[in-house]
Amino acid sequence: MTQAALDSTRITFDCTNCRATTDAFTGTMREAQRLCRNCVAKRKDMRPRELNDLTGAEWAQSSKSVQEFPDTRSEKQRLHGAAYPQSLASQQIAKYTMKGQTVLDPFAGVGTTLDACVELGRNGVGIELNDQYRELALADLPKDGTQVLISGDSLHLNELVKPDSVDMVMTSPPYGALLKHVKGAFGYKWQEHSRIAPIRNPLPYSDDSRDLGNMPYAEYLTAITQVMGNTMMVMKSGAYAVWVVKDFRASKEKIPFVPFHMHIADCAAEAGLKLWDIQIWDQTRFRPLVCLGYPSKNYYHNIGHSYNMIFRKP
């Protein structure tokens, strides 16, 4: 075929992806899709982002149902005793929000969620009852108004935060009184046969009667349900909430296993939140194995994981 004949089978157009002027033979896939050579078969996804700023690859990596996070703790997190890693908060916030959106932590503690918001360019709102923890959190936060830490009680959260103003909730509920049940005598009953050093359990957060961590378990779950209901009122429609929780054992009450994450799911359902997903936070590498019940007939597994319970406002 002559060059003139070849030229007659070409068509010139602007690439629909990069807008560069190009040409293609008529009847080819490139001509049908109106793509240049650089964009064909590797076209950038031009669909609008509806949830987050992640690429497809980042979305996929964050979607693994079992995740590990570096067990690096700041000094203020060590003083708190039960704070999750900032890397965990950052991953969750990056998944469920876009830059400039607002994240709420109803149990702000020493401010890990707000620190993650600073890192990712999100606005953070925290509620904290404990003055000591609040001061530790404020020391690290910028004074530009993007991070707000309120002194108050999350049982009255709906009076502290505007309705329909929150794009995501990222939190972990207080554990103080619950962890009193996980005594060293249970974990280290046969310590004389072990070289493992005892681990200090997190201390109660405060002596304040309003502190959920000081409540009996039944009252505690009722209060958690109320807090979840309050978050529902301030969350936008379709917003996600991530609650980081861990199961435990109540040996003094002769309860071998308390499925705390299931109880949290029940509280959320009662409050009107929908259970959307569960992600396991694998902490096995950072927790020494202990002989639970050895050498009796009572055999217990080491609880080396927590749950990221993911809920959504309908």
Rank of each mutant, 00 (worst) to 15 (best):
R49D: 15
I264P: 01
A177M: 11
H156M: 12
G27D: 03
Q283Y: 00
E159M: 05
A241L: 15
Q67S: 14
L203A: 10
C267Q: 05
I199L: 13
S151H: 14
L157Q: 05
L212W: 05
I280M: 11
T113W: 13
L129H: 03
T102R: 10
V66S: 03
V242C: 15
A4S: 14
N38H: 11
Q86S: 11
Y188K: 01
T21K: 08
D115Q: 07
I150K: 06
E58G: 02
E135A: 14
L114T: 12
R285D: 12
M29E: 09
A57T: 15
V118W: 09
L289H: 02
Q132F: 08
L155T: 14
S154K: 07
S206K: 00
Q101V: 00
S165L: 02
Q279P: 04
D115W: 03
R43P: 00
I278R: 05
A269P: 06
E31K: 06
K143Y: 04
R285T: 14
A177I: 13
A32N: 04
D53S: 15
Y133R: 07
G272H: 07
S251V: 12
L54H: 01
M46S: 14
H263V: 04
A20V: 15
T28G: 10
K297T: 11
T2K: 06
T28E: 05
